[in-house]
């Protein structure tokens, strides 16, 4: 086979590198940033964009894994509870004279997250109950666990060990926030993996038709398990970002509602909630758009609740666009 023919086949088999939704999102973000740059004094300065990227990181990072989960036709509504467990465990380990180092804290958080993800994964892959039911249950279990670890108080006096991921000067190299850079690299790796490896394509196959995928030789249960464990691992890392962005006190509202923020970013990013289609790049852009709107609303001096309104509109528009695309595909 000639190289030209091979390239032709590749083009036919592989989806286009960027989807329509991503181009639209880039357009919307560019227009929004331009509008904010004109209408507010300091939106487009390092002092404003750097914290914005830091605030985007945890949602986008968990969003990468959530995208894979949703591509397989599942969902994970327990990530808020999981963030709570990982954060409080890690925060408690950091406190005190014998507090752990940065590396140990990150490993501990990732291990805890991975374990919680494994619980979800095993129940979903082998329990044959829909993911929303399982993770709905575990969300409550995780919240209970998190509250028990909190005891009846907050975690006070958290040292600046995790400032590497934070908003302050320790959290940046050459002006780029570490938390966002890490998120960007992980998103890029996930993008490549989902697009160019057989293992990555299997996630799409499972979401398209799990039965057909199984008959085609895909180890469905193992893949599904992997998706949830990966979610847990990234939740663990994101929890370190969350601690770094908070104050020296951690209270029990941590993680609350984060599952909705993550799912919103995924949906706005163009991933089909029905599974089978989606992109981690879109999720990153979705998270960036949501945070840009929130910061924009504050910087413009508008009412805080308007950002909820805009996010709501984005979700409905994104889902509507997805349905229209699906209809167009069917009629083709």
């Amino acid at each position: 086979m000639t190289a030209v023919a091979e390239a032709k086949i590749k083009r036919r088999v592989l989806p286009s590198p960027v989807t329509g939704q991503e181009i639209v999102l880039v357009g919307v973000i560019v227009v929004l940033w331009a509008a904010l740059a004109v209408s507010t004094p300091a939106f487009l300065t390092a002092g404003s964009i750097q914290p914005l990227l830091v605030a985007t990181a945890p949602v986008a990072l968990v969003g990468v894994a959530m995208t894979i989960v949703i591509i397989t036709g599942g969902i994970d509504v327990s990530v808020g509870g999981a963030i709570m467990v990982c954060s409080v465990l890690t925060a408690k380990a950091l406190v005190g004279t014998d507090g752990v180092s940065l590396g140990v804290a990150v490993l501990l958080s990732i291990a805890a997250g991975g374990l919680l993800g494994l619980v979800n994964g095993v129940l979903i892959a082998y329990g044959r109950v829909h993911a929303i039911i399982i993770t709905f249950g575990t969300a409550n279990l995780f919240m209970f666990l998190g509250l028990r670890i909190f005891g009846s108080g907050t975690v006070n006096g958290i040292p600046a060990t995790l400032a590497f991921f934070g908003r302050g000067p320790d959290g940046r190299t050459l002006g780029i926030p570490h938390a966002f850079l890490i998120t960007l690299v992980i998103t890029a790796v996930a993008w490549w993996y989902l697009r160019h490896t057989a293992g990555g394509r299997h996630f799409f196959a499972i979401g398209g038709d799990a039965q057909a995928a199984r008959l085609a030789g895909v180890r469905v249960q193992r893949r599904v398990l992997l998706a949830y464990v990966l979610t847990g691992v990234l939740v663990g890392l994101a929890s370190c970002f969350v601690i770094a962005q908070g104050t020296s006190t951690l209270d029990q509202s941590v993680g609350s509602g984060k599952e909705l923020a993550v799912i919103a970013a995924v949906v706005i990013g163009g991933t089909s909630i029905m599974g089978g289609r989606g992109s981690v790049l879109g999720t990153l852009l979705g998270a960036l758009l949501v945070q840009s709107v929130a910061s924009g609303v504050t910087q413009l001096g508008w009412r805080s609740q308007l950002s909820d309104l805009f996010v709501g509109i984005f979700i409905i528009v994104a889902v509507g666009a997805d349905l229209l695309r699906a209809r167009a595909r069917r009629s083709r």
Partner: peptide, 26 residues
């Protein structure tokens, strides 16, 4: 008083909003 914003009970959100306020009003 140039602005009043509402962050709920979320610490990280309150911190981010305070950062945005400092940027909006140098």
């Amino acid at each position: 008083i140039v602005d009043i914003v509402y962050a709920g009970e979320d610490q990280a959100k309150a911190t981010q909003m305070a950062t945005d306020l400092m940027n909006a009003h140098p």
